[in-house]
């Protein structure tokens, strides 16, 4: 089932598009305890709305991608939900049914690469340890158990050999993995990640995808802003199609149809998606 999120320009489903039963459909709209639940979220930087009345509730324990064209408000959605970007009045955002301030330990966020000062005098392990500062509390010192946790997180992303390296000396993919490690070390239940796959090499991409799946398998909810629809098809469970409004939510197979994507992307369907649709068409034609 595809929930429409109240968008007036919502796409309609055609009859030849099969509708699989969706056990999570209620989670998308009405679960008050959802890991992230947003009602009436609008953002306007002064030149028209970037986000316009977003209503969304994330299903629990899923690997979810946020996709949409450039400037669709994907990053703004994460940032406004976390309170970094001021939302218009009337918005209601809850995490696990509570305001963010009450459940900070359960929520972790990985920023875009561009927002980081890579010249900062910090080593790879310093950056990962910073993920624990909130849990440590004021005036408390970093202990060996924290260092062990940081090294463990670095091992998961294959960066333990680089622990002493200054962060500006890493490749783009390695930098992403270090920030993933900082996010992992927080041991949250909801992970919000802004373009963790942007500009990464093949090795980093597969490591990041593996760790995101591991988080989901361990019961966490993972929401990822993503630009590569083919990759979303390959490794994500669910998908939010966003362009100023929510155009479609549901499983990846339901949402990422050529028709949905064409409407949300203003008539342009990424070639990768068309080819995948074609490949999928062949699969369904052949007897299984």
């Amino acid at each position: 089932m595809i929930s429409r999120g109240g968008a007036p320009a919502c796409v309609s489903r055609t009859s030849e598009d099969p509708v699989p039963p969706d056990s999570n459909s209620s989670d998308w709209s009405s679960n008050p305890e959802a890991p992230l639940r947003v009602r009436g979220l609008s953002v306007d930087y002064g030149s028209g709305p970037v986000l316009d009345g977003i209503d969304l509730g994330l299903p629990s324990g899923r690997l979810i991608a946020v996709v949409g064209p450039n400037g669709a408000g994907k990053s703004s959605f994460l940032r406004a939900a976390l309170g970094f970007t001021p939302a218009q009045t009337g918005a209601n955002v809850t995490f696990f049914g509570r305001p963010l301030a009450e459940v900070r330990r359960r929520v972790a966020y990985m920023p875009q690469r561009e927002s980081v000062d890579w010249e900062f005098p910090a080593s790879v392990s310093d950056v990962v340890l910073m993920g624990l500062y909130g849990q440590l509390g004021l005036l408390r010192r970093v202990r060996s158990s924290h260092r062990a946790a940081a090294m463990d997180a670095l091992e998961r992303v294959g960066m333990q050999e680089f622990a002493g390296r200054q962060i500006g000396e890493l490749s783009g993919g390695q930098q992403k993995r270090v920030f993933l490690a900082r996010t992992l070390v927080q041991g949250a239940d909801l992970f919000l990640m802004d373009e963790p796959f942007a500009g990464v090499d093949a090795v980093s991409e597969s490591i990041i995808a593996r760790e995101l799946a591991a988080l989901r398998d361990a019961g966490s909810t993972v929401l990822v802003v993503h630009h590569d629809l083919a990759a979303v098809r390959r490794s994500f469970d669910d998908c939010v199609l966003l362009n100023r409004q929510v155009w479609a939510t549901g499983s990846v197979g339901e949402v990422l149809t050529a028709e949905h994507v064409a409407s949300a992307y203003g008539g342009i369907v990424p070639i990768a998606l068309i080819e995948m649709d074609r490949a999928r068409g062949k699969d369904t034609d052949s007897p299984s």
Binding site: G83, R104, P111, G131
Partner: peptide
């Protein structure tokens, strides 16, 4: 932003 998110 990370400092704020972590509740510092």
């Amino acid at each position: 932003e990370q400092a704020r998110l972590q509740g510092l």
